[in-house]
Structure formats: C-alpha cells, structure tokens
Design a protein around this nucleic acid. Structure first.
Length: 336
DNA sequence: AATACGGGGTG
DNA sequence: CACCCAGTATT
C-alpha cells in the first residue's frame, strides 16, 4: 500500500473523478482490454454520455457506434442495459449482490466497484490480482480458488486502494513474463520468488489453437455506395453494421454465397469477380473473408439482419463498424 | 469445466 | 507468422 500511495499510483481519467458512473463505464471497458487500448474510447464515451441519464436515454445504435473497434460488443449492450436499470431503479446498487444483478457485471466487477466506488471492504480477483497472489503464495490453484486468498489480504477501510494497488502491481511489475522481482515491494514476502520460479504461477488452463475458418462476403454496389447490414443483436459483432457474409467451411465457393444471399436478402443474385481476401483473428477463430462482387436487382428485404444501409465505403460516418468490416471496406476502396 | 465473444501487443 | 493477454454469460 505504501508503494501505491507513494508515486506508483497510475493517473487515469476514471480515477481523477471516481464515482459510480465513471467507475462502471471504465470497468466494462477494461474487461479483457488493456488500459492503453481503452483510454481513448473512455474519453469519447464519457464526453458523449456524461452520466447514467444520458446513456440510458441514448439509442443502442449510438452506444455501439462509440464502442466500435473496442471488441466484445455484448459489453456495450450490457452497459447500456445496466444504465437503464439504474435509472429505472432510481439509484445505484449499494451491495455486491445488487451490482451482480446488473447485466454484464460478474464477480470481478462487483468486487471492484463495491470496493472502489462504494468504499466497501470486499476483495476482487482479475487476471493481475490472480497472478500476484498466486506467486505470493506459490499457489497453483485455478482463478476461482484465489478468492479466499484475496479475502485474507483486504485491509479494513482501504479495500478499493488495496485492490487497485494489486492490479497496478500486476500490470507493471508482477507481469506474466520476466517479472521485475528486483524492484517489487512484495519481494521479501513472495514464496514463488524465494523458490526462484515466479513464472511457474499462475497455472493457466491449456489453450487450444483457434481454428481457421473461411467465409464469403458480398460487395453489392449501387452508385458510389455498397450495402451494409446490421447484424442480429446477439452473437458475433451483435448489433453492429457489417458487409453481408457467411461461413463457407466446406469451401463450396460462390454458389454457396449466391444461395445464402438470395435467401437472406430476398432478391436473386449473381456472384461475380473476387475482390480479395481479408484476414482477421478473433479469440476463437482465424477468419479468412473472401470478398466477391455481386449483382442483384431491387431493394433488400431483411431476414436475420435488422437493418440495411447503402453506404459510401470511404465515409461510413457514425455507423458502428467492427474492425473486420473496416478492413473489408479498405479493401473495397483499394480495388475500386 | 468448456465455449463464445474482439482486438491489440510482442518476439 | 506464432504466441500472449484477459471477464462474463451460457451450457
């Protein structure tokens, strides 16, 4: 804690003006996301939506548009729903159980917000804290089993600072590989360091390699624009705009795209030249999206998709586009 | 306990 | 290119 109080505390926008709203927004953004990545998104987000009321009043499309590029879009949907729940309830939850009931708030966030924004003496465990405590105790158990250890360390009255100090320590000194044990304030207490094997902890579950998946996308031109569709609310890139595309794992080729497109958009299509291939890696797959020019007559009708827009690929404007769609648009422009 | 769900970083 | 990082919901 002394390490944290004396100059090691990171200065972050959500720490300058702590409070339930900014803490909630920052924690949603920081799930699975590095501080440096989330920073510009946080600024834009709270500029546009400074409080619960403005966020709750906004249409989901606008929230997703600000989230576009940050990933894990269910977080944006859950944050929006949480803001509406807070406004409907008339107050911010004041217990861990109440926080846990907000959509998208799990055990880590509930503990983090209760300790940081509500000043309660509760522990929390994220990847950083799990790593620090696993090493401190040379503990080889899973993430879930670190919680009892975390409870042991919570100092009465300063749980919020304590939890943030552990996270800062984990992200700056007790890092996954080549931790800086020589300058670590916990060095003299750390069992893993004493045993000379800090990198042996934490013990992580084995990871499988993401399979490679092929997909076919349609570039349907009309004048200077191409067709973008809004994806279903749930699932991959849920609620965001995208080129229409479908998986083609069995390599069926253009005929598969033709059939799928006609079914999905309600008009007959012909599939033309291949524009190129966009590669994009997600957590659970490596996607190879092959772009094809298609020709169709009339206006699209909607089945799975929830909206369709003719859009200038060079100026998609406020449309919420995932990074994969942005890559695809860049290729469309390059081949124009 | 396993899987879906983005995107960015480093070597 | 390969490998690494990191919460929640769902099943």
């Amino acid at each position: 804690m002394r390490w944290y109080d004396e100059h090691r505390r990171r200065h972050l926008p959500w720490r300058e003006e702590p409070g339930p709203y900014r803490t909630l927004v920052s924690e949603f953004m920081l799930q699975q996301t590095r501080v440096e990545t989330a920073l510009p998104f946080f600024q834009r987000f709270v500029d546009r939506f400074p409080d619960f009321a403005s966020l709750a009043a906004a249409p989901l499309d606008e929230v997703l548009s600000l989230w576009a590029g940050l990933g894990y879009y269910s977080r944006a949907r859950n944050l929006h729903a949480s803001a509406r729940a807070v406004v409907a309830a008339g107050s911010f939850p004041d217990t861990v159980e109440g926080l846990r009931a907000l959509p998208g708030v799990g055990p880590y966030m509930a503990g983090a917000i209760a300790s940081i924004a509500l000043g309660q003496d509760v522990p929390t465990v994220d990847g950083n804290i799990a790593r620090v405590l696993s090493r401190l105790h040379a503990f080889a158990g899973s993430r879930a089993k670190v919680w009892p250890l975390a409870s042991l360390h919570v100092p009465p009255g300063r749980a919020g600072d304590h939890n943030q100090a552990l996270m800062d320590l984990g992200s700056s000194i007790c890092v996954p590989r080549k931790p800086a044990c020589m300058i670590c304030p916990l060095r003299t207490h750390c069992v893993a360091h004493a045993e000379g094997r800090p990198e042996a902890f934490p013990v992580l579950p084995p990871k499988r390699r993401a399979p490679r998946r092929r997909a076919l996308a349609a570039v349907w031109r009309r004048g200077d624009t191409i067709l973008l569709v809004r994806r279903p609310a749930e699932g991959l890139f849920g609620g965001l705009y995208d080129l229409p595309w479908t998986f083609d794992d069995h390599d069926a080729g253009p005929s598969a795209l033709q059939r799928w497109l006609t079914e999905e958009l309600g008009v007959p299509f012909e599939v033309g030249a291949q524009l190129g291939t966009v590669r994009h890696t997600l957590t659970h797959m490596r996607l190879e999206l092959q772009l094809h020019v298609v020709e169709g007559e009339g206006e699209p009708r909607l089945r799975s998709f929830t909206a369709a827009r003719w859009t200038d690929p060079a100026a998609p404007g406020e449309l919420g586009l995932p990074t994969l769609a942005r890559k695809a648009l860049r290729m469309v422009i390059a081949k124009s």
